[in-house]
């Protein structure tokens, strides 16, 4: 049994339109690497040029964001479900003097 990875809509164009995938590993980082190895087009959206997880990519095991629980080095077990959750932000961002 492997780890199940739930893929958000924004990344499915890079995973053959799969909404979920399976990968093996003993840590979150190993599972994500195996997932990226199997889906090379998704790599640039998960990792920056230094190989670090991009700041706008959040990874959950169940209901727990790994940034609050061991990060990429945290353990993961067969049968766990790992969810990729993008950070969403934007807006006008005008100068303060333009505030209504």
């Amino acid at each position: 049994m492997a780890v199940t990875i739930l893929i958000p809509t924004a990344l499915r164009a890079f995973t053959g339109r799969q909404s979920q995938a399976q990968a093996d590993g003993k840590t979150v980082g190993e599972v994500l690497k195996a997932f990226a190895d199997a889906n090379p087009d998704v790599r640039q959206h998960l990792y920056d040029e230094n190989g670090e997880l991009r700041s706008f990519v959040n990874v959950y095991i169940g209901d727990v964001n790994i940034r609050n629980a061991g990060g990429l080095g945290g353990p993961i077990e067969d049968g766990d479900t790992l969810t990729l959750v993008p950070a969403i932000a934007g807006g006008v961002v005008c100068e303060p003097e333009q505030k209504p």
């Binding site: 959040n58 964001n65 969810t83 959750v85 950070a87 969403i88 005008c94 209504p100």
Partner: peptide, 13 residues
């Protein structure tokens, strides 16, 4: 908030 929005990842999940 008058010129930015942000959605918490917990809310996205």
């Amino acid at each position: 908030k008058f010129h930015r929005f942000r959605i918490e990842p917990d809310d996205f999940l």
